[in-house]
């Protein structure tokens, strides 16, 4: 994809602690096209949230980016000086987190927080910034009168809409969403997802959507990447995942969701637990939980194309 909006290549992140370095993200590469929704699915500890913070360089010690590049519209974010970095954050990359209460300042009215962001990055006057804030609220379905509220006065769904509105304030080209609906119940989740889809169609931003919920991704994403033990183990167009998921981990994940209309078939989930990042096993990280594992899996399987636009890292499916 020569015209990628975001191109992450060979990115590695380590947490350096007293007991050694834990490699949370291990030579990850992927691209996001303009206007595309890339879903990134994985379980807790797979490195997906670390990856989300690494892209706009928001990681804090002891996390260190040890290799790779993150190119946004041709510039490598990892090479930018602080001033340039500040200028692209929020205006080109914005973020929405799982718990908006954590992302919003609890002692500031919503309007001030909106105005702050807008004024910091655009130099608009306060009155103009507040006008823009009201527009944004209307855009995401919040009554602009709510700008006078404090975050705790809003319901969970409203807060998440507010976080979305602030993220969109400067019309970024890419919004990274880290489990934006996980804390909500299904009905609210559905509402927010429909809102995101509608806004994306209108404003054309791309989304890196991070979640543990692969069935949600199959509905909303264009492509999906599956992360396990710090690596991307499978990547394909979303609709391929239902019919032709290849990696044993992906298949296990899909077999972990009871569906609302299957016929009492017994699901198994995946036995065991994810590998230690501090002392990762040699070769494929999933081998210990995999029913197909063989001696070959002691070597890291290459991430190869197994069908058009469909790549997987598994010896059993790669051949």
């Amino acid at each position: 994809m020569a015209d990628a909006l975001l191109a992450v290549e060979d990115l590695s992140v380590e947490y350096r602690g007293l007991r050694g370095a834990a490699r949370a993200v291990d030579r990850v590469s992927f691209e996001v096209a303009p206007g595309e929704v890339l879903g990134l699915a994985g379980e807790s500890g797979c490195g997906k949230s670390t990856l989300a913070l690494a892209i706009p360089r928001l990681l804090r010690a002891p996390a260190v980016i040890t290799s790779g590049s993150v190119r946004l519209g041709g510039r490598d974010i990892l090479e930018l000086d602080d001033r340039r970095l500040r200028s692209i954050r929020w205006s080109e990359i914005a973020m929405v987190f799982q718990n908006a209460m954590n992302a919003l300042n609890p002692v500031m009215r919503l309007g001030s927080q909106f105005a702050d962001v807008i004024r910091t990055h655009t130099g608009l006057g306060r009155a103009r910034a507040l006008e823009r804030a009201a527009e944004l609220c209307t855009l995401v379905g919040i009554d602009p009168a709510r700008l006078r509220s404090y975050p705790h006065e809003l319901s969970g769904g409203m807060r998440q809409r507010a976080a979305l509105a602030i993220a969109l304030a400067l019309e970024p080209k890419l919004v990274i969403m880290d489990e934006p609906t996980t804390a909500l119940d299904v009905v609210l989740q559905r509402e927010i997802m429909e809102e995101i889809t509608a806004l994306r169609e209108r404003l054309g931003f791309a989304v890196l959507f991070i979640t543990h919920d692969i069935s949600l991704l199959i509905e909303v994403a264009d492509r999906i990447a599956i992360m396990y033990g710090g690596r991307i183990v499978e990547q394909a167009p979303a609709r391929s995942f239902l019919e032709s998921a290849a990696h044993p981990y992906t298949r296990g994940l899909l077999a972990s969701f009871p569906s609302i209309d299957d016929d009492g078939e017994r699901l198994t989930g995946i036995p065991g637990s994810p590998p230690s990042l501090i002392d990762p096993p040699a070769g494929c990280g999933f081998a210990a939980r995999c029913t197909l594992a063989s001696d070959r899996c002691r070597e890291t399987p290459p991430f190869v194309e197994i069908a058009p636009a469909h790549r997987a890292a598994c010896w059993e499916v790669g051949a």
């Binding site: 200028s87 973020m95 987190f97 954590n102 992302a103 919003l104 300042n105 702050d116 962001v117 910091t120």
Partner: peptide, 15 residues
């Protein structure tokens, strides 16, 4: 208590 998201947002907001 964790405050990661808030800190990250502050960084984003104010650079």
């Amino acid at each position: 208590a964790p405050g990661g998201a808030r800190r990250a947002t502050e960084v984003l907001r104010h650079g």
